[in-house]
Amino acid sequence: MIDWPLTIFEVWHYTVNTIGISFNALLIYMCIFKTPRVIRSYAVLILNFAISDFGACITDLLVGQRLIPAGIALAYISNGPCKYISGTACYVGYSLMLHFFAHSLWSLLLSFAYRYYILFHPSPSRTTLAIIICIVYTPSFFQWTTFLMANDDQAKVEVYLRNRFPNYDFDNKTITGTLNILESWQAMFTILPMTLPVTPAYCAILILRKKIIRELASVAGTMAKMSHATKTMHQQLLRALSLQACLPFFFSIAVASYAIGQLGIYNSPVLEYLTFSSLLFIPAISPLISIYFVRPYRTTIILWYYRFRATKMRFVIKPPTTTTQLFDGESGTKKSMFWNGTEYQSATRNSRSQQSNHY
């Protein structure tokens, strides 16, 4: 008999993780090799996002975790390739995955705080941003290392699950978990940071987004002669902010599906698979937003497309000349990049109103 929830779960995870791994790898390449000097500072934040999301997709693909909240116990069934190694390997991969998702949420909040900060101040240096990222990452790192000690004996966890869920199929499953999360501070140190801060962080992101939009509208209102390119950049920034502000919503779905089971309200394989299936939207969508709205990266993709067409059709197609508005540099100046084939020529022009245009 086909286990339809598991089949749908596996198809979904393999598909979305493949997309997420591919685009995050592409974004990492862009950040390292295709970032113009004028946006190298902000690219540190983008690279941090890409690495975190790439790690989340890789570990989720290897683990394929089904989360089973069961009263005071919390168990996991690993359906990924890690099951061919050992339950311990699956648990280590799972703890790594959780810490990547946690860091991704705080990185998103940091990104919005950065965008609001540079409306009034010069962009921080790459070294400063790297130090801030390390500070933000520290809680996630300790969450990962402490959670490794919360894994109980697999045989005991399986016996507990069979008694609590006699209708579930636990034959030939790789099972790990914690028998009593209330007595395990290591487990609580992961559960609480993964659930409680989601709503406050989401509210803070929405507040910062509102403040950024208000400031951009104020700047636009004082510029009677704002160019069409500048207006377009403002509109693109607002669209990027709106899309990124939606990402924590998927985190909220995951927390809700987990809480319903852990509180004993309702247990179902669908909810148990939904927890991490909904989380996968974040690392899959986030790199697409960055690649599309960061103009130098999007321009690179367009250039690659023309080269591919030229190679495929066996003759050279020269792309049309376009003007690409880039980000602010650390000095607060604006670069206007003229793309003609593979050559870039830059002309600097000062514009205080453009300090917020990082997308």
Rank of each mutant, 00 (worst) to 15 (best):
L274T: 15
Q244Y: 02
P122C: 00
A254S: 12
L288A: 11
F141E: 12
Y91C: 00
Q186P: 01
I205L: 04
L208R: 02
L129S: 00
L243K: 03
E10P: 08
S218I: 13
Q325Y: 07
T322R: 06
S78F: 07
T275E: 07
S278C: 15
L238K: 06
Y160T: 07
T324L: 09
F293T: 01
S41Q: 15
V294P: 00
H103I: 07
A73C: 09
S331M: 13
F276L: 12
W144I: 04
A150H: 04
L67F: 15
I207E: 01
Y76A: 09
S22F: 14
T35Y: 00
N163K: 12
L108F: 02
I289M: 04
P296C: 03
S78D: 06
S286A: 14
A220W: 07
T323R: 12
T35R: 02
A256C: 12
Y344H: 05
A56C: 09
V92N: 04
T322Q: 06
E215I: 05
V92Y: 01
P283F: 10
A256E: 04
E215S: 10
F101I: 02
S257I: 11
Q345S: 14
F100K: 02
F120Y: 05
E272R: 08
L45E: 00
N24A: 02
L208F: 02
A102M: 08
Y137E: 02
C31P: 02
T323I: 13
A256N: 11
Y359A: 08
E10K: 15
L26V: 08
T190W: 02
S242D: 03
M97W: 05
H121N: 14
R239W: 09
Y297W: 10
M30W: 05
S78H: 11
D153K: 14
S351N: 14
L326K: 04
T178P: 04
H228E: 15
F49V: 01
R37I: 05
I8E: 13
E158M: 05
V159I: 09
L67T: 11
Y305G: 09
I58P: 00
R349Q: 03
T18D: 13
M30V: 10
